[in-house]
Every structure is written in structure tokens, then in C-alpha cells.
Simulated assay, not measured.
Amino acid sequence: MIEIKDKKNCCGCWGCVTRCPKQCISMREDEEGFLYPVVDTAQCVNCGLCEKVCPVINQANPQEPLSVTAARNIDEIIRRQSSSGGIFTLLAEEVIKEGGVVFGARFNDHWEVVHDSTDTIEGIAAFRGSKYVQSSTGDCFIKTEQLLKQGRRVLYSGTPCQIAGLKRFLQRDYNNLITIDVICHGVPSPRVWQKYLNEETAHLVSRRKYFRPFGNDETRIVGIAFRDKATGWKQYSFTLTFSKADRENLCYRKTREENTYMQGFLSDLYLRPSCYHCPVKRLKSGSDITIGDFWGIEHIMPHLDDDRGLCCLMVNTERGQNLVNSIDAATHEASYKDVARYNPALLHSPKIPANRVKFFAELPKHGMLRTTQRLTRKPFVQLCRNAIHKTLKKIGLR
């Protein structure tokens, strides 16, 4: 049976929970806000299926893609709404046009991140854009299996560990399944995310700029963007959008360097323990397609760099290639080496920060905002250097 003795050995994919024939495994939240499987030993029959589907126990070999391109959606509106180049939308639309179903991560009514499905073009919008929180998979693996057995075409998108978990859960290859994973930096704690939202909005209320953003019909959060391109693709911003009955929508926007949640995320402060020992780096998930930001494009193909977002599109299987061939996108041939050079998350896990234990110890007492700001504060000398660099850049000396 599954027994989590070291939390780095569970990526929280839900595969064991959904495969258990006795339904005696449940997911429980730990003190950091991550979900882990817990077995009811009184009901367990030791069939071993939970271990057979675990992507940590059963790791695949590293792969290299069949092809790599720099790609973007030619629809500039969709591209602007996407985190990078808008390629996911094109792939999802193609599957839905053929009567298929698309699975992806979206926000629920409480701004938690969950996995869900859609069979409409309009439904794809909820899956668009990065969500830097671990999503709850729930029963999506079961629904996917049911749809596949019915003969429906399914596109399942997620993090590499979620895709690996799905493939292990299914235990067979389906010709009508397409899997897409993303180049993943790591997944933050859902509890930390909720604490951030509650504290940030309370702070905004105290400044009397926004009023009762949660649970009030007059003023509420209507949009969250982790990667708002209003300040550019490379220097993206985090944005909360509020709706107020008697005035235009209000936007709270800060660059990734200024926003506290993004500071903690990019400092690897509250990622899931398994993310520091990721079992599916180097394309080990078995996905058909891998997508991500084509960072470094200004050095590789500067003529493509318009700072509006560009995908690296890596095709890993013939099935993935057939889907990519069916979409109308602007593509330029690239190399796996170039992608890996400027997007190291493709190959390497983040290092555990020295302050991680201190962060979760101080979080209950001092709160998310104060704890993160203190533990990610840059040295005074570095702040001075950054200020000088920005000034020189503005006046054209850098």
C-alpha cells in the first residue's frame, strides 16, 4: 500500500486515490497546505494497485523531443490573453472541433485552482494562462478514462507529474488521448495562496481603494492574472481585477519583482517538497506535447522577439505531431538545446531554500505577506545596484 514516509516522494497527482478499488485512500491536507494520500488500513486489501500507478515509484527514462519550434498563435487577442504564445488554445480548439473534450486547470468560485473539463470553445478560456498554485485533480482521471472508453477524443493538460500520474493510472495507451504538459518550475501551496489572497485584499480594503472583494455583490474579484502582459511578456505583472457596481473595474497590478506572492514563488519558498526532487524532469512524463515560454529568444532568434509572448513547442510523439500539424500557427524551427539553456526548469529541479522551514514556522504567527517579504528581502547593496541599473537603462546608458 501507499505509505508516505518522506513527503518528497509524493507529487499529489491523485492517481492512487482514484485507482484504489476499495476507495480506501483519501487526500488530506498537511500543515503546509499540500494534499497527501492516507490509507484506511482496515479497508485495504493490499492489491498493490496504488503503488503500480505512482509516478514517483515508477519513473520513466528521460526523453528528447521529435521536434522543437518557436511558435505563436496568429490571433493577437488570444496571444495577449495567454501566458506565452497562445498555442494551447489552438490545440484545444482543434480537439473540441472534432467532438473531443479538454481537461485543464481553472479557478473555482473561491479562486482555488482545480482541474476540470470542457467540450466547448468558450470553455477553453478558463484554462488559459498560468496558475502558480497546485491544482486539485479530483476525479478527472476517472472521467478521462470513462470518456476514452466511450471513444471520445480527450486532450488532457497539466503539470508533468499530473500527466505521468494519468498515464500510470490508465495503464494502457489510448489512441484517442492527447496529453500536454508544461515546463514546470514547481507548484506552490494552495493554503499559502489562499492566505495571500485574504491578506492582500484585507490590505487593499484598509487602504480604502477596494471594498469587500470577497462575498459582496457590489464589489468582488472578477479576474486574476499571474502573467499579465500589460508590462510586457518578459517583465510580466501579477494582476487582481475587481468589479464594482457603480464604477469601472479596478485593477491592482504589480510587477513580479514587486508582488509578494510572486517573490515567494520565484524564490522557491513554498513549493511542494516533491518539486525539489521532481521525478519527471527531462520529458519523463510521457506526454505527447510539451509547451512553455521560449525564454532567451532575443539571443537565439532576435527577429521573433516582440515581447508579446512566444511558446517553445516540443513534440514528443507521432500522435502529438499529427495534432500540431492540424493547427494554423506561426512556427520557426528551433533546438532542444536552446530551450534547455534558457529554461532550466525543463531539466533541473529547484534547490530547497534555506528559509523554507522558517517560512512555514513563522507563517501562522506573522502571516503570509509579512513572512514572505522578510525572508525574500534583498540585501541593501543589491537593491542599490538594481536601482542604478534601472536608472542607467532609462537614460540609455545601459
Rank of each mutant, 00 (worst) to 15 (best):
M1D: 14
K5N: 15
K8N: 11
W14R: 10
G15V: 00
C24M: 07
I25G: 05
E29H: 10
E29A: 02
D30Y: 10
G33S: 03
V38R: 12
K52S: 13
K52M: 08
V53L: 09
C54Y: 06
C54H: 07
S67C: 07
E76S: 14
S82R: 03
F88A: 14
T89M: 00
L90N: 00
L91C: 01
E93K: 13
I96T: 09
E98I: 00
T118F: 06
G123D: 05
R128M: 09
R128W: 05
K143V: 12
E145H: 11
L148M: 07
G158A: 08
C161G: 05
K167C: 01
R172Y: 04
D173Q: 14
I178C: 05
I183T: 06
G186E: 04
G186D: 05
P190F: 00
E200M: 15
P213H: 07
I224T: 05
F226I: 09
D246M: 04
N249D: 15
C251V: 12
L266M: 15
S267N: 14
R272H: 10
L283R: 08
S287L: 01
E298I: 03
D305F: 14
N325S: 15
T331N: 02
E333D: 13
D338K: 06
A340M: 07
N343S: 13
K365G: 00
K365S: 10
L369D: 09
F380I: 14
A387S: 12
I388F: 11
